[in-house]
Write a protein that binds this DNA or RNA. Structure first.
Length: 901
RNA sequence: GGGCGGAUAGCUCAGUUGGGAGAGCGUCGGCCUUACAAGCCGAAUGUCGCAGGUUCAAGCCCUGUUCCGCCCA
């Protein structure tokens, strides 16, 4: 391939499509059930089948893909298990909306037809997100894609249900649950979002049965009074002691209800008297149980008042509230209305205000399961990262309440329970029983409810691997290595997978749980369609390329911190991709006919720069490895960024240019003489350039797979996909302290000269002379040795290296270490400018020196601080003092010159 | 009401056995120097939210406090 023909700007579109196809075709994402390699496995948090890729998915999956690609290159047998979730209510809502357009509803269709219709919808429109994940570069083993309603996973669901029922951990009963009148189904506590709402507190007088007067209760939901069956006061409330056991007349309903006392009542709330509606409030329900009160349901499943609501029957619950208030006003029983802030529950799917509702539902008794799930985190069998979430996890697990798992919708796993019409016997079984085990009756009716979607998601780590069958996949890949997910589903999903995994597999579902934060907009607001502040990941990929996008997410992925994403940030990282691309273009210009020498002949006689870049590369490999192992994606990404841009490009490529271009060994003449380069030096340089670039793209591949593969492909002497190449290892032998120290000195001197040029506005086209004076023989020798590097990078026509001596005339000064740097500016120097520059420099040193002086004059510091630290401070003080002296000396001379002119 | 997180340069944020306040973006100055102007070279910029405490030494540890955000009830 004609590498010198690479386009000037990197164009991701075509490249990404081509390589993704190639990876899939070559089966590079596929995991082996049987392998000598060590396993590494991740199950994807299954997106809703109705979902489209949003920033949260993009972030979550980018992190997973980085880990998978990293481990694959390290030689692991990687399984990244993909799939989607049937998302009961969400999917049902989508299809119902579609039906509504056809002026139909699910009831007119009937259950069976409706479910068919949902399957059909799924065939046609579902799982779009799976295609979108490919655009991101996700390296899932697509052949293993699962769906929570697949036959295999459904079998797992039924098995778990039956077993838990056998073990007494699933039960059915009449309790207050959260009811969504729009979705017409029960919800678990977690599926209710609480929002603060400015409402009112209504004070209503319930007249005594016989005497005058009455007791005043306070409520935010007056319509529920129609179902009141008592008034409760606190047993320690002296105000009401005399009233206990008496009765009041429930207004509007003219029902006699007792005044009872219960510890639950808070004397400070309202009047201290609480109306009790067991059928419509969870606390009231419990009080009702304790006092054997009747539960009267006055609100129906559809959110309208029912026949128990007397003259209010048929009214919407909120309409009814107004009418009840009006009626009370008319009767003079509404004593007072106060503005009141209280939280109101909303359905997490459709935002409808949730109604506490008494009904017969199925529950999981989670306490015993939670105990196991707590234990494994305590022992460290599963680590939660960052650790801060461990406490939240424990908190929730310790205060867990039974989980309502039945839903009155049609799309989902139907509860495997049957009722005998003859004797009412309840049978829970894997499949339809042929006869009632109690009475042998044959009319058995299956439970119409389906299971909470999260019930099947809870089994995901093992149901996707074939459980309840004893599969090789399970043997190889369970428990999974890590789960990567957002904190928003820590309870919904992670906690439940922990419980189910441990209970059924006798082994934790994951070794690590990495919890990441949220992607927000540039102002830190949550992205939402209604706010109009969403950034579409697909748009970003089209516009900037998947690599730039992925790298942005990784670079901003600081643990425990939300990402504030803006297009500007992505654009910035696109520049990085382009930088790498152009560095490659440059390299390939000189490598087109290069053939890497397997024998290692090429590594003889490395130059300083060669040794330095290889040593630095080792440092980056170490940093990336350490940070990825610790899920510090941002640190890993930034290490690569810094290396590529500020070491490889800014220094290494600049240093080797003369060798590659065959430029004059001495630039002193200021002319570029095309010389035939020394073959050995040239070949060595090409070898190191090739190695460095080769290793760099391997390090970068997990983050920016497409461009890395493209570069890998263009690089001579590479074979196969970069996905199967080895991830660079850091070894102590590759660290070259001497090269790094020497380069630090040279870079410091070069920096000093460049600083003068920049500050004094010397244009790059102007070649100047410089002098470095140092008492240090070693430093002088190094400068002599690498004179050409300095000449070249500073655009000098001459460099004199000498012992400290007189200041060269008409020069500007700077100091690095024990070296004084002079740049001769004959005829160009502006002494005022130089004076200002020196003053500024001195002021900086003085400031720093003050702090050090204080330390060194502090006896306590000298005595108590470790000698190491004291020594370091001393040395630094000396360095600064010397630097200051030099600069002041120069300032004085410059001041004289200014005075003379 | 309970719990958690954040507050560091103009912006977004790094900063762990406590010992030299940093990066990116933006800004300013100089450059189209034969990979890249999506670039190169250089520069400026801080009461580390506030108040105490521990320590020879605090952005970091402790206590209190203010503001912002989140979770749970």
């Amino acid at each position: 391939m004609g590498s010198h023909l690479l386009k000037k700007g990197y164009e991701p579109k075509e490249v990404e499509k081509r390589w993704y196809k190639y990876w899939e075709k070559e089966g590079l994402f596929s995991a082996k059930d049987v392998s000598d390699k060590e396993p590494f496995s991740i199950v994807i948090p299954p997106p809703n089948v109705t979902g489209v890729l949003h920033m949260g998915h993009a972030y979550n999956n980018t992190l997973q893909d980085i880990l998978c690609r990293y481990r694959r290159m390290q030689g692991y047998n990687v399984l990244w298990m993909p799939g989607t979730d049937h998302a009961g209510i969400a999917t049902q809502n989508v299809v119902e909306k579609e039906l509504a357009k056809e002026r139909k509803d699910r009831h007119s269709l009937g259950r069976e037809k409706f479910v068919e219709r949902v399957w059909q919808w799924r065939e046609e429109c579902g799982g779009l997100i799976i295609k979108q994940l490919r655009r991101l570069g996700a390296s899932c083993d697509w052949a293993r894609e699962r769906f929570t309603m697949d036959e295999g996973l459904s079998k797992a669901v039924r098995t778990v249900f039956v077993k838990l029922h056998e073990q007494g951990l699933i039960y059915r009963g009449n309790y207050i649950i959260n009811w969504c009148p729009r979705c017409q189904t029960a919800l678990s506590d977690l599926e209710v979002d609480h929002e603060d709402h400015s409402g009112h507190l209504y004070y209503i007088r319930y007249p005594f049965e016989k005497e005058e007067g009455g007791i005043v209760v306070a409520t935010t939901r007056p319509e529920t009074m129609l179902g009141d069956t008592a008034v409760a006061v606190s047993p320690s409330d002296k105000r009401y002691r005399a009233l206990e056991g008496k009765a009041v007349i429930l207004p509007l309903m003219n029902r006699k209800i007792p005044i009872i006392s219960d510890e639950y009542v808070d004397m400070r709330f309202g009047t201290g008297a609480l109306k009790i509606t067991p059928a419509h409030d969870p606390h009231d329900f419990e009080i009702g149980q304790r006092h054997n009160l009747a539960s009267i349901k006055v609100i129906g499943a559809d959110g309208h008042m029912n026949e128990q609501a007397g003259r209010f029957q048929g009214k919407d619950r909120f309409e009814c509230r107004e009418e009840v208030l009006q009626a009370l006003r008319e009767e003079g029983l509404l004593e007072k209305v106060e503005p009141y802030q209280h939280s109101v529950g909303h359905c997490y799917r459709c935002r409808t205000t949730v109604e506490p509702y008494l009904s017969k539902q199925w529950f999981v008794k989670v306490k015993p399961l939670a105990e196991e799930a707590i234990a494994v985190v305590e022992t460290g069998a599963t680590r939660i990262i960052p650790d801060i979430w461990t406490k939240t996890y424990f908190e929730w697990m310790n205060n867990i309440k039974d989980w309502c798992i039945s839903r009155q919708i049609w799309w989902g796993h139907r509860i495997p329970a049957w009722t005998c019409e003859d004797c009412d016997e309840l049978i829970v079984a894997m499949g339809p029983p042929s006869a009632c085990p109690a009475c042998e009756g044959s009319t058995l009716v299956q439970e119409t409810d389906v299971l909470d979607t999260w019930f099947s998601s809870a089994l995901w780590p093992f149901s996707t691997m074939g459980w309840p069958d004893d599969t090789q996949t399970l043997k190889t890949f369970y428990p999974t290595s890590v789960l990567v997910t957002g904190f928003d589903i820590l309870f919904f999903w992670v906690a439940r997978m922990m419980m189910m995994g441990i209970h059924f597999m006798k082994e934790v579902p994951f070794r690590d749980v990495y919890i990441h934060a949220l992607v927000r907009d540039a102002e830190g607001k949550k992205m939402s369609k209604s706010k109009g502040n969403v950034i579409d990941p697909l748009y970003v990929i089209d516009e900037y390329g998947a690599d730039a996008f992925r790298f942005t997410l990784a670079a901003l992925a600081a643990q425990g911190r939300d990402i504030k994403l803006s297009e500007d940030r992505i654009e910035g990282y696109r520049h990085f991709i382009n930088k790498l691309w152009n560095a490659t273009r440059f390299s390939l210009m000189h490598l087109s006919d290069f053939e890497p020498d397997e024998s290692g002949e090429g590594v003889r006689d490395l130059s300083l720069a060669d040794r330095w870049i290889l040593s630095r590369l080792n440092g980056v490999a170490e940093s990336v490895t350490k940070n990825l192992d610790g899920y510090k994606f941002n640190d890993a990404a930034n290490a690569i960024y810094r290396f590529v841009w500020h070491e490889f490009c800014d220094w290494y490529l600049e240093i080797i240019k003369p060798v590659l271009y065959g430029q004059p060994v001495s630039a002193a003449s200021g002319e570029r003489v095309k010389e035939i380069p020394k073959p050995a030096r040239y070949e060595t340089t090409r070898f190191v350039l090739w190695s460095a670039l080769n290793e760099t793209v391997r390090l970068a591949h997990p983050f920016i797979p497409f461009v890395a593969e493209e570069i890998w492909d263009k690089l001579p002497g590479t074979e196969g996909s970069i996905m199967t190449a080895e991830f660079p290892k850091s070894t102590a032998t590759r660290y070259d302290a001497e090269a790094e120290t020497t380069m630090d000195l040279l870079m410091g001197i070069i920096g000093g000269i460049r600083n003068i040029r920049g500050e004094m506005n010397v244009p790059p086209s102007m070649l100047v002379e410089a002098t470095v004076q140092s008492p240090d023989k070693g430093a002088r020798e190094l400068l002599e040795r690498y004179r050409d590097m300095v000449l070249n990078l500073c655009r000098l026509k001459g460099l004199e290296v000498m012992l400290p001596d007189k200041r060269p005339p008409s020069s500007a000064t700077s100091v690095f270490g024990n070296c004084s740097i002079f740049v001769s500016l004959k005829g160009v120097i502006d002494f005022e400018l130089e004076k200002g520059r020196l003053n500024k420099e001195i002021a900086k040193i003085v400031k720093e020196f003050d702090g050090i002086g204080k330390k060194l004059s502090n006896r306590d510091f000298l005595q108590k601080a470790p000698q190491e630290v004291v020594q370091k401070v001393r040395e630094k003080g000396e360095r600064l003092a010397e630097k200051k002296d030099r600069l002041e000396e120069n300032l004085e001379k410059v001041a004289q010159l200014v005075g003379n002119s």
